[in-house]
Amino acid sequence: MVVYGVYIVSKSGGLIFNYDHNVPKIEHERTFTYPLDIKLINENKKIVVSFGQRDGINVGHVLMSVNGNPVVGKELEDGTDVLEYLNKPQNFPVTLKFGRAKMTTNEKIFLASMFYPLFAIASQLSPEPRCSGIEVLEADTFRLYCFQTLTGVKFMIVAEPSQAGMDILTKRVYELYADYALKNPFYSLDMPIRCELFDTHLVNLLETVEKSGISNV
């Protein structure tokens, strides 16, 4: 039973709340000799594996550290360019750590606003009249549940594909939103939710669901 995260998107498509619940950390460290047996490229200010996946290091993974020194963007902390560093045979053997890139807050906001038109187009392309937008979206690694309220706020839950009862959970999160965010006099509508009570109740809710199933909430 795993819930990966909760997102709340306002009527206008802005991300007003995000909570990462249980995101697994994927990191692999390995010692390499010259020349590297994987192909690295510089993409979006990151060093990314573009070809040659092995030992758990997959295409799309980001270079996180070189010999234990963290990589910032495409440089080491002391300012050396990583790709140039890895092109010099005298720097080998070298220990590299790769991992799946964690989403930054900016990327999450970007994704939330990207979901908004997808939701609208899905209802426009419908072969049946009077159709809602996307309610469930499934990929091989996760399932996304989306519940839109009458006022247009979207509650989204990303969970394991086998996790049942998540549509009920979205409605429970809506209840918490109505109780602890909307009744908070310091909360203004369509702004990011920063209410401690909401946070704690949400974490409790997710934990109960994971421990004892959806039937107990």
Binding site: Y4, G60, R100, M103, L111, P127, C131, E138, A139, V158
Partner: peptide
């Protein structure tokens, strides 16, 4: 969207989506 939001490395990626009618 699926590639970015996926918590694990996706293989097949997007499979289907469901709305109220189709």
């Amino acid at each position: 969207f699926v590639n970015k939001i996926s918590p694990l490395d996706p293989k097949e990626g997007f499979l289907y989506y469901k709305t109220s009618k189709y």
